[in-house]
Amino acid sequence: MQASNSFKRTFLKKFLVGIQQTNLASKNTSLFERRNAIKLSSDIALASARDGANWSRAIVANASKQEKNKNLVKNILGEVQLDRFTKLQNKGSSLTCKRETCKRILRRSRLERRIRKRSPKRVAGSAVAKRIMKKRSHFLKCVVPGGELMDEFSFIDETIDYIFSLRAQVDVMQRLANAFEHCIGK
């Protein structure tokens, strides 16, 4: 159950391109800024290595929201892939707007219901369990990038995929860090 080596290699290549880019862009920055930049580039590299999944699209979309990151995204992804990503992203953005309005309405109605429900009633155990489940799954959806827009079934698929690639990411980055440390130690 491991991500393939070719996936790791492509991720590593893109990641190194991203690191180079950030280093060229910012010479004298604080540690945290550099950390954020490296994390971002690793995320984008992961997204570009795993092309086609919803979460990778979401990562790219989130990254390219900020102007300063656009160059980085473009460099890592390359023109062709970026085109594809943005095309899909534009399609998705209208969907997000709609979702947001829906959410607002839903929240309002929920508020009303809550007010109405204030009367001291005994709540059934199953209802409590259901509420807990809802909370958990909502939280998990927040954790997985782009999870808010998915239905339950595709969301589980995406989560599996995301966990796979996260593992690969951690693995590669760990090796990279180890290698650097070793280099410095010598």
């Binding site: 950390r35 490296i38 954790v143 966990i163 996260l166 860090a177």
Partner: peptide, 25 residues
């Protein structure tokens, strides 16, 4: 959720580590 978050945190930590080594990279 815990697992995914731990993985994400690991990535963060590693990027921190890499950032510390960064100038030499």
């Amino acid at each position: 959720i815990n697992y995914v978050q731990s993985l994400q945190r690991q990535v963060e930590f590693l990027s921190m580590k890499l950032a510390a080594v960064n100038p030499r990279i």
